[in-house]
Simulated assay, not measured.
Amino acid sequence: MVSIAQPQSAEPQSACSVRLVTSGARRKVFEKLMHGLLMFCAVVSVITTVGIVLVLLSQALPFFGEVSLVEFFMGTEWTPLFKPQHFGILPLICGTMMVAAGSAAIAIPFGLGTAIYLSEYAKPVVRDVVKPALEILAGIPSVVFGYVAVVFISPLIKDWFPSAAYFNAANACLVVGIMILPMIVSLSEEVLRSVPRSLREAAYALGATKLDVTCGVVVPAALSGIVASFLLAISRAIGETMAVTLAAGATAHLTLNFFDSIQTMTAYIVEVSSGDIPTGSVEHSTIFAVGLTLFVMTLLINILAQWILSRMREEYE
């Protein structure tokens, strides 16, 4: 007998189609929710930045209504808490830049050398030990570094240079240089390791030595990222607060002697914020004037960094 095949029911296919449509609808809803959440995070970041700028401007404008911009940026004396009052911010800017330049002079050579060693010369066992140690160093609170500077580094500097003040710029430069060292090492090492291996192999094929490849090929190829790590470290040094407050002292005077006591902009903000200055007074408004100046300085450094990176960026396929 010949059996005739019965047509299969279309119900299972319909149920499968319904499940697929439902799953696709849920996926679209989830994607829309994630898109909204990410957009919300971005908007909050922008609003926070704009809010900080507005607060600084609103609080600093009354100060500049009483103190001229010429006196503020050209004056060489900063004594807003004493009589007679002087509002020249140059001593604070000079102290801040001394700490930033001194710490960069210490951290950049050692940081770049360490990054090159870890990327090109160190064995995996050594790299696995050194990198976590640097990450631990980066996680130490800044106030601990400041305490170490006071009880250990300052006495050493005083023994080596008797004419130096106990709290001085060199002390702050050393401790801040140690603090920004892990940032330079970590970022530079990652950039050096991301250089394509084909560039190294091509240099070796031409008879170059290990040192030639490192200095003539790898470092120039990663120069944009290395410079970015330097600028980020300098920005961190400019904005450092507690370690500099403890190590550098609180004497705001215009000097280029690293063995003198100085005061940075962040240290001054800490000093006035923790005092008994009446709110709304011109002395209290100096906090926001100094903070606005520090914000503008950091912004200019970031703009300079972006310009340098755009000129030096290398792209590889």
Rank of each mutant, 00 (worst) to 15 (best):
F152C: 06
A172M: 03
S194W: 05
G207R: 07
S229A: 12
S281G: 10
Y117W: 13
A203D: 09
L300H: 04
Y117I: 09
S142M: 05
M1S: 05
L300W: 00
E135G: 15
V2M: 12
T279R: 15
S17A: 13
D276I: 09
M98L: 15
V272E: 05
S310P: 02
G65V: 10
Y316T: 14
E190Y: 06
Q85F: 03
T286W: 03
A107P: 01
A248F: 04
L61R: 11
L294Q: 09
A105G: 14
A170W: 09
V195H: 06
F110H: 07
Y117L: 09
V70M: 10
C41H: 10
V129I: 12
S14T: 13
G207T: 02
M183G: 05
S281N: 08
V217W: 02
Y121D: 04
Y204G: 05
S23E: 15
S142N: 03
E31A: 04
A107R: 00
L118A: 00
A203T: 01
I153P: 03
T96Q: 13
G102V: 02
I4F: 11
L299V: 07
I226T: 00
G275S: 15
F288N: 01
L300I: 12
I106V: 01
F145D: 09
F40L: 15
I226C: 02
S198N: 08
T293C: 13
Y268F: 12
L81R: 12
E314S: 11
L192W: 04
Q263W: 02
S310G: 11
V130Y: 09
V282M: 03
R27D: 12
W160V: 12
F152K: 05
L181S: 05
E189K: 08
I262V: 13
E189A: 08
V44H: 00
V143I: 02
S142I: 02
E11G: 02
C215L: 14
F288L: 01
A252E: 06
I234Y: 05
V55I: 10
V227C: 15
P182W: 00
M74F: 10
V18F: 08
L37W: 08
I178P: 00
K83E: 14
P109I: 01
F288M: 07
R26Y: 14
I93M: 15
E120Q: 13
V29F: 11
N168D: 02
P62K: 11
M34A: 12
K32Q: 15
V151I: 12
V55C: 06
E71G: 07
I308V: 15
V185A: 09
S58Q: 13
K32N: 14
I93W: 04
K131D: 04
H253Q: 05
E283S: 12
D159S: 14
G146I: 03
E271L: 15
R236K: 04
